[in-house]
C-alpha cells in the first residue's frame, strides 16, 4: 500500500503544481513532486537515480524556478486568460483517467515482465561509461550548447 500512497501523492502534487496561482508555490509543489518520485525510486531499488532526482530536480531546478519567479515579480501574473482552462484540470484528469482505465484495463494482463538474460550484471557507472557513452557525449554537447545559449541571452552587446 506504500506504493499506492506514493502514486497518489505524485498525481496530487503534479495537479497542485500545475494549478498554483503563485509561481513560487508552484515551484515548491514541483519540488515535492520530485521528492515523491525520488521516494518511488528508492522504493524500487534505484538509489543513485533517487539521489540525482532529489539533489538536482528537487533542489537546483526549484531554486531556478523560485529565483526566476521572484525576479520577475508581478510579471509572472501575466495573461488575463491564463488560468481560464486551468480550473478544469482535476475534472479533465479524472475523465481522462476513467477513459484510460476503461480502454486499457482489459489489456493489463498483457503487460507482463519479459525476462532479460543478463550475462554479466553491470554497475550503473559501467553502464554509463561503457554501454551508454554516446549518451554521455550527447549530454556533454547539450551542456555546452546550453552554456552558449545562456551566454548569448545575457551577453554584453558592444556599442558600435
Amino acid at each position: 500500500m506504500t506504493h499506492l500512497a506514493i502514486l497518489i501523492s505524485m498525481v496530487i502534487t503534479s495537479v497542485l503544481a500545475a494549478q498554483s496561482r503563485n509561481f513560487i508555490y508552484a515551484a515548491m509543489w514541483l519540488a515535492l513532486l520530485s521528492a515523491t518520485v525520488a521516494v518511488a525510486m528508492f522504493n524500487m531499488g534505484a538509489p543513485w537515480a533517487a539521489v540525482f532526482e532529489l539533489s538536482v530536480c528537487a533542489g537546483l531546478i526549484t531554486v531556478l524556478f523560485a529565483g526566476t519567479a521572484s525576479m520577475l515579480g508581478k510579471g509572472t501574473k501575466y495573461a488575463q486568460n491564463e488560468r481560464r482552462f486551468m480550473k478544469y484540470l482535476p475534472l479533465g484528469l479524472f475523465a481522462f483517467g476513467v477513459c484510460l482505465w476503461y480502454i486499457t484495463y482489459p489489456y493489463a494482463a498483457l503487460l507482463k515482465p519479459s525476462q532479460i538474460t543478463q550475462t554479466t550484471p553491470m554497475m550503473v557507472g559501467d553502464i554509463i561509461w561503457q554501454l551508454r557513452y554516446k549518451d554521455l557525449i550527447g549530454q556533454i554537447c547539450m551542456f555546452v550548447a546550453g552554456v552558449l545559449m545562456v551566454k548569448a541571452f545575457f551577453g554584453r552587446v558592444k556599442d558600435e
Binding site: M44, I128, G146
Partner: peptide
C-alpha cells in the same frame, strides 16, 4: 524495475536529469 534491469534504467534516468537541467 519490472524487467529486472533497474541499473540500466538508473543510468538512462541520470542522463535524462542532466538534459532536463539544461
Amino acid at each position: 524495475y519490472t524487467i529486472g534491469n533497474i541499473d540500466f534504467a538508473q543510468a538512462v534516468i541520470m542522463i535524462m536529469i542532466g538534459i532536463e537541467v539544461v
